[in-house]
Design a protein around this nucleic acid. Structure first.
Length: 224
DNA sequence: GCATTAACACAGA
DNA sequence: TCTGTGTTAATGC
């Protein structure tokens, strides 16, 4: 079953066999925007998505329970696996931040371009490898870290991935909600709140609804 | 003792 | 006024 919330898949035109980067494949297709929580797809998707703005969360459903598998920032590709085999069928991709923009092309089109472009093949492999590593890291975190450490680990990773460096500090803006941080860290939103307040009391972070500043990323890392 | 669940207050739409 | 979020207290494992 393929169900897309926003239909109208358009194909890029022109010769892309010499494309320098995977993002080139998305240049001709229109940008689609999503509000927080809105679904990019559910069930199976045979398309590949480029995140242009915001964060996309990918999760899978197992009966009544949802497992957050991965999340993707601007510039990253979602659903790359469809280039190598059929999608699992129980996945949901949704906008995790306020305003998410993506572009998408069909997996079939993507595969055609890949066949004659070794550079893009290596880029896709690197992308899949990075995703594999994130999964392995998540397994490590769930089995070896407690809730507090997982929240801190999330902060460090998030800051390094999409935080802005301001002098010795790191600015996270906009701030994910405690609910979202809890989803990613695998804990309750109340626990996230408790940990953040402890870190604030220790002078390691400063935050409000609009932004979060990590005073000392190094000191934070040592707590994981 | 740690983490989740419950309960409540508050802010923004 | 309603929904989502932040905070604190109670409960369970």
């Amino acid at each position: 079953m393929t169900v897309s919330i926003k239909e109208s898949v358009s194909l890029p035109v022109g010769d892309l066999s010499n494309a320098e980067s995977c993002t080139d494949l998305f240049q001709e297709v229109p940008e689609l925007t999503y509000r927080r929580g809105e679904k990019l797809f559910f069930g199976s998707s045979f398309e590949v998505y480029l995140v242009v703005r915001g964060i996309v969360r990918l999760s899978s459903w197992h009966g009544e329970k949802e497992l957050l598998e991965d999340y993707f920032h601007a510039g990253e590709l979602v659903n790359c696996g469809v280039l190598l085999g059929p999608p699992p069928g129980n996945q949901v991709a949704a906008a995790m931040t306020h305003r998410v923009a993506i572009r998408r092309v069909s997996g079939a089109f993507f595969r055609r371009v890949l066949q004659s472009n070794g550079k893009l093949q290596r880029e896709v492999l690197a992308n899949l490898y990075a995703s594999l590593n994130r999964s392995r890291d998540r397994l490590y975190r769930y089995s070896l870290l407690n809730a507090r450490q997982r929240v801190i680990d999330f902060l460090v990773r998030y800051a390094e991935r999409s935080g802005r460096r301001v002098g010795y500090e790191h600015l996270i803006k906009p701030v994910p909600t405690h609910q979202e941080m809890g989803d990613i860290a695998g804990t309750a939103r109340q626990t996230v709140n408790t940990v953040l307040n402890e870190l604030r009391a220790e002078g390691l972070v400063h935050f409000n609804r609009r932004y979060l500043i990590i005073r000392d990323l190094g000191a934070l890392k040592e707590q994981v």
